[in-house]
Simulated assay, not measured.
Amino acid sequence: MSSQDSLDLVALRRWLDHHLPEQTGGALTARLIAGGRSNPTYELSDGTREWILRRPPHGHVLPTAHDMRREHRVLDALAGTAVPVPGVVGPSADADVIGVPFYVMDKLPGITLRTRADAARLSPERRRSLAHTMVDALAVLHEVDPAEVGLGDFGRPAGYLDRQLDRWRRQWEASATSPRPEVDELLHRLARHRPTTRRSGIVHGDFKLDNIMVDVDGSRILGVLDWEMSTLGDTDADLGTLCSFWDEPGEPEHPITAGSTAIQGFPSREELVERYAFVRGIDVPDISWYRAFADVKTAVILEGIHARHRSGLTVGEGFDGVGEMVGTLLDRALDLTATYS
């Protein structure tokens, strides 16, 4: 672990003792978990129990981005619902413990399917079943009444899509490492053709296969992870995100998922949308706009990560090719919106 990103394990031990006074574990160890390109995430252990710690990234981000208190709040609120989430120990809203706000949650005893090779370890039947279970979990999330779980003020559903377009424009302007006029063109196209929000609810913001932890044979979802972009808004945006990251055979792969779902057993995007609509008992419009928006949003996020990496503000591995992914996603979004006047 680099000195730049070292954790004060003595201070963390005191913090855990305060939040878990019944525990009698020993000194803490910490391991940076590979796979995260945004919020540094660590596995903590005291030799008896294990936890996961998440903290904001280094470098410039939007003031409301990577808010650990918000992520903790939504996990805590959903703990009593049918949405599978890990238990949380508590948040630290100030910088007194490790220098930045953070939160700690229980470590779940499962796996995440980050690559095509990971997904290929499951049988085709298990892949199909897992995809259906994912869609069902998303539908369950969107049926939760925010007010009933204490999230009535978690966001402003009205004007959500307009604010999102403005948010990612500002983030691009803050982090762009080279001129890309196609970003302005895409944001103009999306603004001109912005759909009318039909249903609002709790939006995860990054719902995809590798943000789901499953048991070792892939038969059950143990927890939905990475809630850093969650808010109240247009629930079709989550469906668009899922479909953006959902690779199909014979198509160019998403640069992040790299074909993870383009193997036998996984259903098509169309099937995912149909199942979601059936589970919720609703009609779902064409979600091409939401797919294009998800591609643009992901491209902007990756550009920010690329900028931080160039400045030496990332930790761990897997950042060298991030900048190349940006153009691929923008090209995909241009294709999806080619008919927009």
Score class of each variant (00 low, 15 high):
89 V>I: 08
259 G>Q: 11
293 F>E: 07
212 I>L: 11
140 V>Q: 15
99 G>F: 00
45 S>A: 12
234 D>G: 01
59 G>W: 07
341 S>D: 15
322 V>K: 02
17 D>P: 07
141 L>A: 00
68 M>I: 09
119 A>P: 12
87 G>M: 03
87 G>A: 06
317 E>S: 12
140 V>A: 14
8 D>P: 12
201 G>A: 02
297 K>A: 04
131 A>T: 08
106 D>H: 11
313 L>N: 09
189 R>V: 02
4 Q>Y: 09
322 V>T: 10
17 D>F: 03
283 D>H: 15
6 S>M: 11
196 T>F: 09
306 H>S: 08
331 D>A: 13
244 S>Q: 15
6 S>V: 11
133 T>F: 05
76 D>E: 14
73 R>S: 06
269 R>F: 14
123 S>Y: 08
140 V>D: 15
133 T>V: 07
63 P>L: 00
277 A>I: 10
200 S>V: 07
114 R>L: 12
12 L>W: 02
311 S>D: 12
112 T>S: 12
19 H>N: 14
87 G>C: 02
184 D>G: 11
337 T>L: 00
62 L>R: 03
53 L>D: 12
325 M>V: 05
283 D>A: 15
252 P>Q: 04
34 A>F: 12
252 P>E: 02
117 A>T: 15
280 R>N: 13
297 K>C: 04
18 H>D: 13
41 T>W: 04
172 W>H: 04
88 V>C: 04
230 S>A: 04
325 M>G: 04
308 R>F: 01
83 V>P: 06
61 V>F: 01
41 T>G: 03
33 I>S: 08
340 Y>H: 02
98 I>S: 01
88 V>M: 00
283 D>W: 14
293 F>K: 00
159 G>D: 06
131 A>G: 10
51 W>N: 06
272 L>W: 08
258 A>N: 10
190 L>I: 07
213 M>S: 11
253 E>L: 06
333 A>L: 01
10 V>S: 09
263 I>V: 10
162 D>F: 07
44 L>E: 09
201 G>D: 01
221 I>F: 03
245 F>M: 10
3 S>W: 15
189 R>D: 03
214 V>D: 03
120 A>T: 14
16 L>E: 09
23 Q>S: 12
154 F>S: 02
138 L>C: 07
268 S>K: 10
16 L>H: 07
247 D>C: 10
286 D>C: 00
16 L>C: 06
287 I>H: 13
251 E>K: 14
96 D>G: 14
69 R>M: 14
176 A>L: 08
150 G>V: 00
300 V>N: 08
92 S>Y: 04
105 M>W: 02
90 G>Q: 00
52 I>N: 04
291 R>T: 11
24 T>L: 09
113 L>F: 12
161 L>M: 09
127 R>L: 12
296 V>W: 13
116 R>G: 11
78 L>R: 00
37 R>W: 08
70 R>K: 01
